[in-house]
Write a protein that binds this DNA or RNA. Structure first.
Lengths: 136, 136
DNA sequence: CTGCATCCGAAATGATACTG
DNA sequence: CAGTATCATTTCGGATGCAG
């Protein structure tokens, strides 16, 4: 998509080839996943952890989703998986360098969410109220 | 939801009540949505736009998803919707102050993705190769 | 032009049972 | 303990038709 070259009043993201941009979008979609972010935070905060510890730290997650998420993160190089060949199995997960840097990058969003939580809730309440009025 | 208060050993993002944290997570999940981010970027770059313009700027999106996304963003106070009572209808969308600040917050993630794209692809290739070997 | 309602198939996720 | 496999369910998303 040749997207007519456009002036950006305030270049906040950078100009990119459409192709690169698509790839970046894809990466972000993957990484901005709900569980991925929670796992990221847990590992960032608590360091090296076993499978069960992580699942305990993330209340709603199923073992299926945790496995899946950890695999993806491992594949993307965000997480390092260490298996100790003992019985019963002992597996540890920890963030890699890239993983930690992603944590930092997300920090901005985290802070934003924290900071704007009240405003958002207020906005929602207002919106819902207006909607309710409309339908009597 | 009384959610048993939990101890956190080493807070990296800020110590938060589990309740606040849950809300923050919820906000992030909402906001980290695929279409939301694309709409966010388009409006950030191009400013005030009509419905059809936005849909043109985001190749894969269906009208349903665009409507849905814009509604959510409006509800969260990220987007301002202006209706000109003319016929045919004329509706314009633009980011609010909060919306723009979210754009900035996400900028870090965007840059991260751009910067680490290569590493991620390399990591994936390696991972997939190992997996392939495992299964002959 | 904008956008809501509905139907339908596809994909994501959860619950459960089982294995090394 | 750390998964895999399977099945049931929910959710998502696209297509279509209609309305203000």
């Amino acid at each position: 998509m040749p997207a007519a070259p456009q002036k950006r009043s305030s270049p906040s993201y950078e100009e990119l080839d459409p192709q690169i941009e698509a790839l970046v979008n894809e990466v972000i979609e993957r990484v901005a996943d709900k569980w991925t972010m929670l796992v990221l935070e847990v590992l960032d905060v608590q360091g090296k952890l076993r499978f069960t510890r992580i699942s305990e730290a993330i209340p709603g997650i199923s073992q299926k989703m945790l496995t899946q998420t950890l695999r993806q993160m491992e594949r993307d190089g965000l997480v390092k998986r260490t298996v100790y060949p003992v019985v019963p199995p002992h597996v540890e997960y920890e963030l890699t360098e890239i993983g930690r840097s992603l944590g930092e990058a997300f920090c901005g969003v985290w802070l934003w969410a924290e900071k704007n939580l009240k405003k958002i809730e207020k906005s929602r309440a207002k919106f819902d109220q207006r909607a309710a009025v409309r339908f009597g």
